[in-house]
Simulated assay, not measured.
Amino acid sequence: MFTGLVADLGTVTAVDSTQDGVRLNVKTSLAGELSEGDSVAVNGVCLTATAIADGVFAADVMHESLRRSSLAEIGEGSPVNLELPLRASDRLGGHIVQGHVDGVAVVREVRDDGFARVVSFDVPSELLRYVVEKGSIAVDGVSLTVSAIDETSFSVSLIPETLERTTLGTAEPGRPVNLEVDVLAKYVEKLVAR
């Protein structure tokens, strides 16, 4: 389990694509805290570290993760949001994030609003039904609060700290991002449907 509070902005150093999937190598200051078999969220996708050496960890990305996330489009040199799993003694400062990406949205618009930046995303309807104004959502693994919603999109307002410490600081229209909707909304829907 994660919180959506990005711990480091890593850099993809290698992408090895085969017919079986993709192996990513990521350089990060967090590598020293990882052991083989540990979970790490990469742009919100929970992956398993398979090797660690010289400040770089490797992780395999299976076809299911490639289909549901934007990791299929990641290239060498790409920055990625990284978070290690929540420890029982840690504060839950963001929201409950599983690292199970539900799908991909696309940046629609970016505009400044004082010192903040408002980013709007076009979202598939099957995911938008779980998004509520002032609710929680993870975008590329970043825990955010929805500031506005309409029939096809939602917006978030980003503070300078988020802009500086995450990949969302360079978000531009057309860029795909990973979405994980609030897991509680999915459980409520299932209960109500009974």
Rank of each mutant, 00 (worst) to 15 (best):
L127D: 00
E161T: 13
S136M: 00
A185K: 03
V188W: 09
N25H: 14
D150M: 09
S89M: 04
G10Q: 06
E133V: 15
E64L: 09
A41Q: 01
T167R: 09
E76Q: 12
G174F: 12
G103S: 08
T166D: 07
A88S: 03
E133Q: 15
E161G: 04
G10S: 12
V110N: 07
I96T: 09
T3S: 15
R111C: 08
V56P: 07
G55F: 05
G37Y: 05
L179C: 14
I137H: 07
V12W: 05
S147A: 15
V192N: 06
I74Q: 06
V56M: 07
S120N: 08
E126R: 12
L66Y: 02
A58I: 00
P124S: 13
G135A: 11
L30C: 04
D182Y: 12
E180P: 05
T13E: 10
Y130Q: 08
T48E: 10
A51M: 02
D122C: 02
A148T: 01
C46D: 12
R117M: 10
A72W: 03
A72F: 08
V6K: 04
M1L: 14
N25F: 04
E164R: 14
G94F: 14
R175D: 10
T28C: 10
S143Q: 04
E64I: 05
G37P: 00
E109T: 15
V192S: 08
D16K: 07
D140Y: 02
A185S: 15
G135S: 08
S155W: 05
T13K: 02
V188H: 14
L86A: 08
L144G: 07
A171L: 08
G99H: 14
M1K: 12
A105M: 05
L158A: 11
V156R: 01
D113C: 12
A49I: 11
V131W: 02
N178P: 01
E126S: 10
T50I: 04
F154K: 00
A59E: 09
G44I: 13
N81M: 05
G32L: 03
E161S: 11
N43R: 01
L128P: 01
L82Q: 07
T166K: 03
E36M: 10
E36C: 12
R68F: 08
S78V: 02
G93E: 10
G93T: 07
E64F: 13
A148M: 00
L66W: 06
R67E: 12
S143P: 03
T166V: 00
V142I: 15
V139Q: 07
P173R: 14
S143R: 06
E83P: 03
L24I: 03
D54K: 13
V107E: 12
Q19M: 13
E151C: 00
A148V: 00
V123K: 01
I52G: 03
V42N: 03
